[in-house]
Computed example of a mutant assay.
Amino acid sequence: MEDFVEISAVIQMAVAPAFLLTGLGAILSVMANRLSRIVDRHRVLREVKKLSIAKKSVTELALLKCRAKWTHWAIAFTTISALLISLLIAMIFIATEVFVDLDTYLAGLFIAAMAGLIVGLLCFLREVHLSKGVINNYES
């Protein structure tokens, strides 16, 4: 009975990071969708550029490349964060099975995961800010 209570407590500790993984998956889906749209727009503009070189399309191509770079880094950092959270969940279970105190490592993993998420979200925020430049180009 004591083992059941201990396993139950471990599962409860792992539930919060598991929910965090769900949220990270949703964020990654949004980022991947934006990257896909950037790539699609880039392909269209490259075809237009072959037909006639318009200054606006050249400028927009450069902006799209910059946006793609920022989105790439946002996805990379957010994915690293998700990997660290997955490792954290695994280590929670390992720590209870081998009876080793991994609290310091668990805290470090969580801090690293949150730092990765913060950097990823800042990169994504930069890309969103850059996308306003595309809108401004259409208005002029």
Results as ranks from 00 to 15, higher is better:
Leu109Glu: 06
Val58Ser: 08
Val98Thr: 08
Leu63Arg: 05
Ala54Ile: 07
Arg37Met: 15
Leu102Ile: 12
Ala68Cys: 08
Val44Asp: 04
Ser52Tyr: 12
Leu130Glu: 04
Glu97His: 14
His129Trp: 10
Glu139Leu: 15
Ala26Ile: 14
Phe99Arg: 04
Leu63Ala: 08
Met13Trp: 01
Leu125Thr: 04
Lys50Asn: 10
Lys132Asn: 04
Met13Cys: 00
Val128Ala: 08
Met13Gly: 00
Ala112Phe: 15
Ile89Cys: 05
Lys49Glu: 06
Phe99Leu: 06
Phe4Val: 09
Pro17Gly: 00
Tyr138Trp: 12
Leu28Asn: 15
Cys123His: 05
Trp73Pro: 04
Phe124Trp: 04
Ile118Tyr: 13
Leu130Gln: 03
Val128Asn: 03
Phe110Gly: 00
Leu28Asp: 15
Ala26Asp: 09
Leu117His: 06
Lys69Asn: 08
Leu51Trp: 10
Ile11Thr: 03
Asp101Pro: 01
Phe93Ala: 00
Val15Asp: 02
Glu60Cys: 02
Met91Glu: 12
Met13Leu: 02
Asp103Asn: 14
Ala9Asp: 10
Val5Phe: 07
Ala54Cys: 05
Leu61Asn: 03
Thr96Glu: 13
Cys123Ile: 02
Lys69Tyr: 13
Ile94Asp: 02
Ala112Glu: 11
Glu60Pro: 00
Thr78Ile: 00
Val134Gln: 08
